[in-house]
Amino acid sequence: MSFFTPENLEKAKVLVGLYPDRRSALIPLCHLAQGQRGHLSHEAIEEIAELLEIQPAEVMGTASFYDMLHTEDVGKYLVGVCTNVACLLGGGQELLDHASDVLGVSPGGTTEDGMFTLEEVECVAHCDKAPCAQVNYRYFGPLGNGDFDTLVDDLKNDRLSESVPPHGVLSRVFRDAPPMVPLEIIHQERRKMDEAKKARLAAQNPDAGGKQ
């Protein structure tokens, strides 16, 4: 084990413990790894596989299914412009073309300074602010070309570090809760619930139990 920082390794272990089956922690762990390095490196995948007790190919197979998990390096800011139908009606395609011109990269590309990765994204549920864009999964819209230029300028000059977190969607999500109630105890409780229910039903239907 060498990829996760000690602090993140602790978090990873907590995440693994949240599920009846440890593989369920796969996506959260991938987010955690991206938060640490920006993308999901092979090294990270190998370590996640070890934590989940599965093969790296299985982690890769799952991770590569999801658009947010990047196995290649990405920029500091992941800029996603929506061109789905509501944004399209509001000029989303034109905004994407503009973004491409301004950043000097095609969708999927990363600027040479490693600052921005531009993506064409599907609906991000901000259709009332069409056309909209997301930066590290924080939303901006409606965006005219000028608004977009200002946004880029603000990002470049660190004026949005408060509202736009570093890349890694879970970077500000921390579970701060007491240890989980063990499932065995839960199941004891549920057994009692089931018995109480049976007793109630029997009380409602006093005949039901006696009938053959």
């Binding site: 949240l18 599920y19 089956d21 593989r23 369920s24 922690a25 796969l26 996506i27 959260p28 991938c30 987010h31 989940l52 197979g61 799952t62 991770a63 299914f65 999801y66 658009d67 947010m68 998990l69 599907e122 969607v169 879970l170 999500v173 579970r175 989980m180 109630v181 105890i185 839960i186 409780e189």
Partner: peptide
């Protein structure tokens, strides 16, 4: 008693389909 776990998706429309969501929650495609 019951515990509540927040699970993040990772960008796949199909996971809105309930059985795909379950697969995703199980750490799969």
């Amino acid at each position: 008693s019951v515990d509540l776990v927040l699970q993040p998706g990772a960008g796949a429309y199909i996971c809105g389909e309930e059985t795909a969501l379950i697969e995703s929650l199980e750490g799969k495609r």
